[in-house]
Design a protein around this nucleic acid. Sequence first.
DNA 1: ATTTTGACTTAAG
DNA 2: GCTTAAGCCAAAA
Length: 103
Amino acid sequence: MSTTFKEQVYALTRRIPKGKVATYGQLATLAGSPGAARAVGGLMRTNPDIPKTPCHRVVASDGSLTGYSAGHGIKTKRQMLLTEGVSFKGQKVDLSQSLWKGR
DNA sequence: ATTTTGACTTAAG
DNA sequence: GCTTAAGCCAAAA
């Protein structure tokens, strides 16, 4: 298999269960390159495969929602996560409850 | 092959 | 709490 960094990132993003979220840094580590959080975000940006990859389940390290090129941006992203059952803390995700611990 | 960019992260003011 | 600075990595131009 190619097992390239981006393929791993996409695969992991697809594995994030509904109602949970993962941070860019976390995905980067799981993808095999800890510290490549920026690269992960870059991939989401260049590949907005909304129907293929639930990039809305990927948030910043502190639970803040960043980017998102679809819909109304952050607004739509927050709404989607809220609909999926993710716990929100004001404008940020409550990582204490909705952070995907991988598995 | 080199340069630029970016949806990150952490630290410091 | 917000802004600035620097470090970090991979993809795209």
